[in-house]
Simulated scan of single mutants.
Amino acid sequence: MDEKEVAGLISVLILLVLVVVIIVLFTIFVKRKNKLLEEQAKTKEKFEKELAESQIEIREETLRNISWELHDNIGQLMTLAKIQVQSCQDDLKNIDEAAKTIGTALHELRTLSKLINPEALKSLTLPQAVEMEIARFNRLNFITSTFAVEGLPKKIDSKKEIILFRILQEFFSNTIKHSKATHLNVAFHYSGNRLQIFAKDDGVGFLDSSNFSGIGLKNMKSRAQLIHAKLDISSIRDQGTSLRLEYSFY
Rank of each mutant, 00 (worst) to 15 (best):
L51S: 08
A187F: 10
K155P: 00
F29A: 06
D238V: 07
D90S: 13
I227A: 05
Q86E: 15
V17F: 13
F165S: 03
L115K: 14
E150K: 10
L195V: 01
I163G: 09
S54K: 11
K155D: 04
E150G: 06
T79F: 08
A120N: 11
I227H: 02
G8A: 08
S113D: 11
T27N: 12
T104V: 03
K93H: 03
W68K: 08
V20Q: 04
A105M: 06
L77M: 12
A98G: 11
S213P: 08
G205F: 13
I95V: 04
Q89C: 02
R64M: 06
K230F: 03
L226K: 08
E69L: 04
N219C: 00
F249C: 00
N117Q: 09
L168G: 01
N94P: 00
N94C: 01
I143R: 08
V30L: 15
V130Y: 02
I56H: 11
G205D: 06
I102S: 07
K49P: 00
S179F: 05
V30Q: 14
P118K: 06
I22W: 08
T175N: 03
H71P: 09
L18Q: 02
T27P: 00
R136F: 05
R59H: 07
R139N: 14
Q169T: 11
I233L: 14
R223M: 14
A41R: 15
S210Q: 14
S87M: 15
A199N: 01
S213L: 12
N34E: 13
K221A: 14
E5C: 01
F47L: 05
M220W: 11
L184R: 08
F172V: 07
L226S: 04
E38F: 04
N219S: 06
G103S: 08
I95D: 01
A129V: 07
L124P: 01
A81S: 13
K230P: 02
I66G: 05
R32N: 15
A99P: 00
F188S: 02
H183A: 13
K42Q: 02
L140A: 11
S191Y: 03
I163W: 05
S248W: 04
A81E: 13
L184Y: 14
A187W: 09
N219R: 09
S67L: 14
S113E: 10
L245G: 10
G103T: 09
K155Q: 03
S145Y: 12
E60V: 09
V24E: 10
Q55R: 15
L245K: 00
K82A: 12
E61I: 00
E133W: 06
N34H: 10
V17M: 10
